[in-house]
Protein backbone atom coordinates (compact mmCIF):
# COMPACT_ATOMS: atom_id res chain seq x y z
CA UNK A 1 0.00 0.00 0.00
CA UNK A 2 1.34 3.40 -0.90
CA UNK A 3 1.45 6.37 1.38
CA UNK A 4 -1.13 8.24 -0.64
CA UNK A 5 -3.81 5.56 -0.39
CA UNK A 6 -3.30 5.41 3.34
CA UNK A 7 -3.91 9.10 3.59
CA UNK A 8 -7.09 8.94 1.55
CA UNK A 9 -8.49 6.02 3.47
CA UNK A 10 -7.63 7.70 6.73
CA UNK A 11 -9.42 10.86 5.76
CA UNK A 12 -12.49 9.00 4.61
CA UNK A 13 -12.99 6.93 7.69
CA UNK A 14 -12.15 9.75 10.04
CA UNK A 15 -15.09 11.67 8.62
CA UNK A 16 -17.32 8.69 9.09
CA UNK A 17 -16.56 8.27 12.74
CA UNK A 18 -16.80 11.91 13.61
CA UNK A 19 -20.27 12.01 12.14
CA UNK A 20 -21.31 8.86 13.86
CA UNK A 21 -20.48 9.72 17.41
CA UNK A 22 -19.96 6.10 18.36
CA UNK A 23 -17.09 4.27 20.03
CA UNK A 24 -13.77 5.98 19.86
CA UNK A 25 -15.06 8.88 17.84
CA UNK A 26 -13.95 11.48 20.35
CA UNK A 27 -10.41 10.28 20.06
CA UNK A 28 -10.55 9.67 16.32
CA UNK A 29 -7.38 7.76 17.00
CA UNK A 30 -7.53 4.51 15.19
CA UNK A 31 -7.37 5.79 11.67
CA UNK A 32 -3.63 5.50 11.74
CA UNK A 33 -1.77 2.35 10.83
CA UNK A 34 1.15 1.35 13.04
CA UNK A 35 4.74 2.18 12.13
CA UNK A 36 7.09 -0.58 10.99
CA UNK A 37 4.21 -2.85 10.06
CA UNK A 38 3.36 -3.41 13.73
CA UNK A 39 6.90 -4.22 14.87
CA UNK A 40 7.41 -3.04 18.47
CA UNK A 41 9.30 -3.72 21.67
CA UNK A 42 6.30 -5.09 23.61
CA UNK A 43 5.89 -7.78 20.98
CA UNK A 44 9.60 -8.58 21.12
CA UNK A 45 9.64 -8.69 24.94
CA UNK A 46 6.65 -11.03 25.13
CA UNK A 47 8.10 -13.28 22.42
CA UNK A 48 11.35 -13.52 24.38
CA UNK A 49 9.49 -14.29 27.57
CA UNK A 50 7.66 -17.10 25.79
CA UNK A 51 10.93 -18.59 24.61
CA UNK A 52 12.54 -18.38 28.05
CA UNK A 53 9.46 -19.96 29.58
CA UNK A 54 9.72 -23.01 27.37
CA UNK A 55 11.67 -25.60 29.33
CA UNK A 56 12.34 -27.82 26.38
CA UNK A 57 13.86 -24.97 24.42
CA UNK A 58 16.06 -24.02 27.35
CA UNK A 59 17.29 -27.57 27.80
CA UNK A 60 18.22 -27.96 24.16
CA UNK A 61 19.63 -24.51 23.49
CA UNK A 62 21.32 -23.63 26.77
CA UNK A 63 21.82 -26.71 28.92
CA UNK A 64 22.77 -29.24 26.24
CA UNK A 65 25.64 -27.32 24.57
CA UNK A 66 26.95 -26.36 28.00
CA UNK A 67 26.90 -29.96 29.22
CA UNK A 68 28.48 -31.16 25.97
CA UNK A 69 31.26 -28.66 26.48
CA UNK A 70 31.84 -29.81 30.05
CA UNK A 71 31.98 -33.44 28.93
CA UNK A 72 33.97 -33.07 25.73
CA UNK A 73 35.95 -29.87 26.20
CA UNK A 74 37.11 -29.65 29.79
CA UNK A 75 40.09 -31.45 31.29
CA UNK A 76 43.87 -31.55 31.29
CA UNK A 77 43.93 -33.53 28.07
CA UNK A 78 42.21 -30.71 26.13
CA UNK A 79 43.66 -27.87 28.10
CA UNK A 80 47.21 -29.02 27.39
CA UNK A 81 46.73 -29.59 23.67
CA UNK A 82 47.55 -26.71 21.35
CA UNK A 83 45.00 -25.56 18.74
CA UNK A 84 46.89 -22.62 17.26
CA UNK A 85 46.36 -19.42 19.26
CA UNK A 86 44.80 -21.30 22.14
CA UNK A 87 44.01 -24.81 23.36
CA UNK A 88 41.68 -27.57 22.19
CA UNK A 89 39.36 -26.71 25.04
CA UNK A 90 38.79 -23.33 23.38
CA UNK A 91 38.23 -25.04 20.02
CA UNK A 92 35.48 -27.19 21.48
CA UNK A 93 34.03 -24.21 23.32
CA UNK A 94 33.64 -22.40 19.99
CA UNK A 95 32.06 -25.52 18.43
CA UNK A 96 29.53 -25.90 21.21
CA UNK A 97 28.70 -22.20 21.27
CA UNK A 98 28.05 -22.23 17.53
CA UNK A 99 26.01 -25.42 17.86
CA UNK A 100 23.93 -23.99 20.70
CA UNK A 101 23.35 -20.78 18.78
CA UNK A 102 22.23 -22.74 15.72
CA UNK A 103 19.82 -24.88 17.74
CA UNK A 104 18.47 -21.71 19.36
CA UNK A 105 17.88 -19.91 16.09
CA UNK A 106 16.47 -22.99 14.34
CA UNK A 107 13.99 -23.64 17.14
CA UNK A 108 12.91 -20.00 17.29
CA UNK A 109 12.32 -19.97 13.55
CA UNK A 110 10.59 -23.33 13.57
CA UNK A 111 8.18 -22.03 16.22
CA UNK A 112 6.08 -20.69 13.35
CA UNK A 113 4.95 -24.29 12.76
CA UNK A 114 3.33 -24.37 16.19
CA UNK A 115 1.83 -20.94 15.70
CA UNK A 116 0.35 -21.97 12.39
CA UNK A 117 -1.05 -25.15 13.94
CA UNK A 118 -2.67 -23.13 16.74
CA UNK A 119 -4.20 -20.64 14.34
CA UNK A 120 -2.12 -17.82 15.84
CA UNK A 121 -0.72 -16.81 12.45
CA UNK A 122 -4.26 -16.44 11.19
CA UNK A 123 -5.21 -14.43 14.25
CA UNK A 124 -2.28 -12.10 13.59
CA UNK A 125 -3.67 -11.48 10.13
CA UNK A 126 -6.63 -9.81 11.84
CA UNK A 127 -4.17 -7.21 13.17
CA UNK A 128 -2.05 -4.65 11.33
CA UNK A 129 1.07 -6.80 11.83
CA UNK A 130 2.77 -7.40 8.48
CA UNK A 131 4.24 -10.83 7.71
CA UNK A 132 7.67 -9.23 7.26
CA UNK A 133 7.46 -7.67 10.74
CA UNK A 134 6.42 -11.00 12.21
CA UNK A 135 9.44 -12.67 10.62
CA UNK A 136 11.70 -9.86 11.86
CA UNK A 137 10.50 -10.50 15.41
CA UNK A 138 11.12 -14.23 15.02
CA UNK A 139 14.65 -13.59 13.80
CA UNK A 140 15.36 -11.06 16.55
CA UNK A 141 14.11 -13.51 19.17
CA UNK A 142 16.20 -16.25 17.60
CA UNK A 143 19.32 -14.11 17.72
CA UNK A 144 18.81 -13.09 21.34
CA UNK A 145 18.39 -16.73 22.36
CA UNK A 146 21.43 -17.61 20.23
CA UNK A 147 23.48 -14.93 22.01
CA UNK A 148 22.49 -16.31 25.41
CA UNK A 149 23.56 -19.76 24.29
CA UNK A 150 26.96 -18.49 23.14
CA UNK A 151 27.50 -16.50 26.33
CA UNK A 152 26.66 -19.48 28.56
CA UNK A 153 29.20 -21.73 26.84
CA UNK A 154 31.87 -18.99 26.78
CA UNK A 155 31.42 -18.22 30.48
CA UNK A 156 31.81 -21.92 31.25
CA UNK A 157 34.88 -22.03 29.03
CA UNK A 158 36.44 -19.04 30.75
CA UNK A 159 35.73 -20.52 34.17
CA UNK A 160 37.26 -23.89 33.22
CA UNK A 161 40.05 -24.80 30.87
CA UNK A 162 39.51 -22.81 27.65
CA UNK A 163 42.40 -20.58 26.75
CA UNK A 164 42.95 -18.19 23.85
CA UNK A 165 45.60 -15.56 23.18
CA UNK A 166 43.87 -12.37 24.16
CA UNK A 167 40.34 -11.07 24.58
CA UNK A 168 40.17 -10.20 20.88
CA UNK A 169 40.00 -13.89 19.94
CA UNK A 170 37.26 -14.56 22.50
CA UNK A 171 35.19 -11.75 21.09
CA UNK A 172 35.78 -12.44 17.42
CA UNK A 173 35.12 -16.20 17.62
CA UNK A 174 31.97 -15.60 19.70
CA UNK A 175 30.67 -12.99 17.26
CA UNK A 176 31.23 -15.21 14.22
CA UNK A 177 29.61 -18.22 15.92
CA UNK A 178 26.64 -16.07 16.88
CA UNK A 179 26.25 -14.18 13.61
CA UNK A 180 26.54 -17.37 11.55
CA UNK A 181 23.54 -18.75 13.39
CA UNK A 182 21.26 -16.31 11.55
CA UNK A 183 21.48 -18.69 8.60
CA UNK A 184 19.76 -21.25 10.79
CA UNK A 185 17.06 -18.82 11.82
CA UNK A 186 16.17 -18.81 8.11
CA UNK A 187 16.45 -22.61 8.08
CA UNK A 188 14.08 -22.84 11.07
CA UNK A 189 11.56 -20.50 9.41
CA UNK A 190 11.75 -22.49 6.19
CA UNK A 191 11.10 -25.75 8.02
CA UNK A 192 8.46 -24.15 10.23
CA UNK A 193 6.50 -23.08 7.16
CA UNK A 194 7.21 -26.29 5.28
CA UNK A 195 6.44 -28.96 7.87
CA UNK A 196 2.91 -29.32 9.14
CA UNK A 197 3.85 -30.76 12.52
CA UNK A 198 3.47 -28.97 15.80
CA UNK A 199 6.68 -30.61 17.03
CA UNK A 200 9.04 -29.68 14.23
CA UNK A 201 12.05 -29.61 16.55
CA UNK A 202 11.73 -33.34 17.21
CA UNK A 203 12.63 -33.77 13.57
CA UNK A 204 15.09 -30.90 13.32
CA UNK A 205 17.11 -31.73 16.48
CA UNK A 206 18.62 -34.91 15.05
CA UNK A 207 19.03 -33.23 11.66
CA UNK A 208 21.14 -30.49 13.27
CA UNK A 209 23.27 -33.06 15.09
CA UNK A 210 23.97 -34.88 11.82
CA UNK A 211 24.78 -31.59 10.08
CA UNK A 212 27.16 -30.65 12.91
CA UNK A 213 29.09 -33.91 12.68
CA UNK A 214 28.94 -33.95 8.89
CA UNK A 215 30.05 -30.34 8.60
CA UNK A 216 33.06 -30.85 10.84
CA UNK A 217 31.74 -28.56 13.55
CA UNK A 218 32.42 -30.89 16.49
CA UNK A 219 35.74 -32.24 15.28
CA UNK A 220 37.89 -31.40 12.28
CA UNK A 221 37.51 -33.96 9.50
CA UNK A 222 40.52 -35.73 8.10
CA UNK A 223 42.00 -33.64 5.28
CA UNK A 224 41.41 -35.10 1.83
CA UNK A 225 38.93 -37.76 3.00
CA UNK A 226 35.64 -38.30 1.22
CA UNK A 227 33.81 -37.10 4.30
CA UNK A 228 35.79 -33.88 4.31
CA UNK A 229 34.90 -33.29 0.66
CA UNK A 230 31.20 -33.89 1.29
CA UNK A 231 31.40 -31.67 4.38
CA UNK A 232 32.31 -28.68 2.27
CA UNK A 233 28.81 -28.71 0.78
CA UNK A 234 26.87 -28.99 4.05
CA UNK A 235 25.36 -25.95 5.74
CA UNK A 236 27.40 -25.86 8.96
CA UNK A 237 30.79 -26.20 7.28
CA UNK A 238 31.41 -22.56 6.44
CA UNK A 239 30.25 -21.29 9.83
CA UNK A 240 32.41 -23.89 11.64
CA UNK A 241 35.50 -22.93 9.65
CA UNK A 242 34.95 -19.19 9.98
CA UNK A 243 34.23 -19.33 13.71
CA UNK A 244 37.38 -21.36 14.41
CA UNK A 245 39.65 -19.42 12.04
CA UNK A 246 40.74 -16.73 14.53
CA UNK A 247 41.79 -19.49 16.94
CA UNK A 248 43.45 -21.88 14.50
CA UNK A 249 45.10 -19.05 12.58
CA UNK A 250 43.95 -20.56 9.27
CA UNK A 251 43.52 -17.92 6.61
CA UNK A 252 39.90 -17.46 5.58
CA UNK A 253 39.08 -19.17 2.31
CA UNK A 254 36.48 -17.95 -0.14
CA UNK A 255 34.83 -21.38 -0.26
CA UNK A 256 33.87 -21.01 3.41
CA UNK A 257 32.24 -17.67 2.77
CA UNK A 258 30.58 -19.04 -0.35
CA UNK A 259 29.21 -21.97 1.66
CA UNK A 260 27.60 -19.64 4.22
CA UNK A 261 26.20 -17.25 1.61
CA UNK A 262 24.86 -20.06 -0.58
CA UNK A 263 23.02 -21.76 2.29
CA UNK A 264 21.76 -18.42 3.57
CA UNK A 265 20.25 -17.77 0.14
CA UNK A 266 18.76 -21.26 -0.11
CA UNK A 267 17.08 -21.04 3.31
CA UNK A 268 15.92 -17.46 2.89
CA UNK A 269 14.42 -18.09 -0.52
CA UNK A 270 12.81 -21.28 0.79
CA UNK A 271 11.37 -19.51 3.82
CA UNK A 272 10.09 -16.59 1.73
CA UNK A 273 8.51 -18.97 -0.77
CA UNK A 274 6.71 -21.00 1.89
CA UNK A 275 5.74 -17.92 3.85
CA UNK A 276 4.26 -16.24 0.81
CA UNK A 277 2.26 -19.35 0.12
CA UNK A 278 1.10 -19.51 3.74
CA UNK A 279 -0.02 -15.90 3.97
CA UNK A 280 -1.43 -15.66 0.45
CA UNK A 281 -5.07 -14.63 0.27
CA UNK A 282 -6.63 -17.42 -1.73
Amino acid sequence: MTASTTTTATTTTATTTTDKGTPGSEAGHRRATPALGGLNTTLLAIELRRVLRNRRTLVFTLAMPAVFFLIFGVGAEYAGKDAGRGNVSAFIMISMAAYGAMIATTSSGAAVATERALGWSRQLRLTPLRPAAYVAVKIATAMVLGAVSVVVVYVLGALTSADMDGIGLWVSTALVAWAGAVVFAAFGLFMGYLLPSENVMQVLGPVLAVLAFGGGLFMPLEEGSTLATIAEFTPMYGIAKLAHAPLTGDSVQWTWVLNVVAWAVVFTVGAAWRMRRDTARV
Binding site: P34, G38, W120, Q123, T127, P128
Partner: peptide, 24 residues
Protein backbone atom coordinates in the same frame (compact mmCIF):
# COMPACT_ATOMS: atom_id res chain seq x y z
CA UNK B 1 -13.26 -16.47 15.31
CA UNK B 2 -14.73 -19.83 16.20
CA UNK B 3 -11.69 -21.71 17.43
CA UNK B 4 -7.92 -21.46 17.71
CA UNK B 5 -6.01 -18.25 17.37
CA UNK B 6 -4.57 -18.30 20.88
CA UNK B 7 -1.12 -19.09 22.23
CA UNK B 8 -1.48 -21.47 25.15
CA UNK B 9 1.80 -20.46 26.79
CA UNK B 10 0.84 -16.80 27.23
CA UNK B 11 -1.31 -15.47 30.04
CA UNK B 12 -4.60 -13.74 29.32
CA UNK B 13 -3.07 -10.36 30.12
CA UNK B 14 0.04 -10.99 27.97
CA UNK B 15 -2.10 -12.03 25.03
CA UNK B 16 -3.99 -8.76 25.26
CA UNK B 17 -0.87 -6.65 25.78
CA UNK B 18 0.78 -8.28 22.76
CA UNK B 19 -2.29 -7.81 20.56
CA UNK B 20 -2.73 -4.21 21.73
CA UNK B 21 0.89 -3.44 20.82
CA UNK B 22 0.21 -4.28 17.18
CA UNK B 23 -2.29 -1.47 16.67
CA UNK B 24 -1.45 2.19 16.22
Amino acid sequence: MQTGGLLKDLTVEETLRLTASLFA
